[in-house]
Computed example of a mutant assay.
Amino acid sequence: MRAHYRAAGLDESDVADDPYEQFARWFADAARSGMMEPNAMVVSTADRAGRPSSRTVLLKSYDHRGFVFYTNYESRKGRDLAVNPYASLLFPWHGIARQVIIGGAVTRVGRDETVAYFRSRPHGSQLGAWASEQSAPIGSRAELEQRYEELAARYPEGEAVPAPPFWGGFRVEAETVEFWQGRENRLHDRLYYTRKGEGWTLQRLCP
């Protein structure tokens, strides 16, 4: 199967000097397109031996400090980032024939920021963060649901749920950002930002 792209092009004169600003423009386009969860991104990490793994998570915030997502620190990605604190993020906006690929160093967000975000989550999601030992083996679905029901009885709707100490945010500080626009005859546009001191350089890559 092969899609035939006929989208408008991406020219150096049309993009922002700063990739965070350019990301904001494209993110707004993706949101307006009506696609489901434009903040869904594939996060790729590698363990101490360099073995990669990928999964889809949701971007929760971004600014000039980086791109933030939340997870269990004991999950596979959390363990990877503890020993190899670098990640790649991929936004696969297939519906508008665009991709954004971000690479950079990863740090944990401050605890106050994590707690503030945790309190903004739906009650059920707060309980789910406690119930699931993310990436750990579990005997059955029933066991997972029993953990959840026990927590729901302990923290009924309307009662504050504390943020788990093993759960929090990671921030990816961009070192490289690629904007990919699908074009006709597989001659796609690829504009690639690289961090240079306090600024950025911009290159066009071959498709």
Results as ranks from 00 to 15, higher is better:
A153Q: 11
A142H: 11
K196F: 12
Y148P: 04
A116Y: 03
L202I: 08
D11K: 14
R121H: 11
E37C: 00
Y62E: 09
L151W: 04
K196N: 15
W130L: 03
N72G: 06
G169E: 07
A24M: 08
W130T: 03
A46I: 02
R183E: 11
L89H: 02
Y193D: 04
E21W: 06
E198G: 04
R55V: 04
E143C: 03
L202S: 03
A46G: 02
L81A: 00
H4R: 12
W180G: 10
A30E: 06
E178N: 08
F166R: 07
S61Q: 08
Q99W: 02
G9V: 11
R108C: 10
A46Y: 03
Y62N: 09
A16I: 05
Y73L: 00
L187H: 08
G128T: 09
E184P: 06
V42S: 11
A174G: 12
R195V: 10
S44E: 02
T114S: 15
I138Q: 06
G110P: 15
L151R: 06
E173Q: 14
G95K: 11
Y117T: 12
G197Y: 02
Y86M: 10
L202G: 03
F27H: 11
E143A: 15
Q181M: 05
V83A: 12
T176H: 02
A152V: 01
S125Y: 00
L90I: 07
A97S: 14
Q181P: 15
G139A: 13
V106F: 00
E198Y: 02
T71C: 02
S13D: 09
A163I: 12
F179L: 13
Q22T: 12
A31R: 14
L144M: 15
G124E: 13
G50Q: 02
Q203A: 11
E157A: 15
A28C: 10
P19C: 04
H188N: 12
V161D: 10
E133H: 13
R190N: 11
A136G: 02
D18P: 08
N39C: 08
E157P: 10
E113T: 11
F91S: 01
A87Q: 02
S13W: 04
R154V: 04
L191Q: 03
S135V: 06
E159G: 04
R154E: 09
E113W: 09
R121I: 10
F27Y: 15
R154F: 01
E157Q: 13
Y20G: 06
E143Y: 06
E150V: 10
P137E: 07
W93T: 09
T71I: 00
P165R: 12
I138L: 15
H94W: 13
V83K: 05
A40Y: 03
A30G: 08
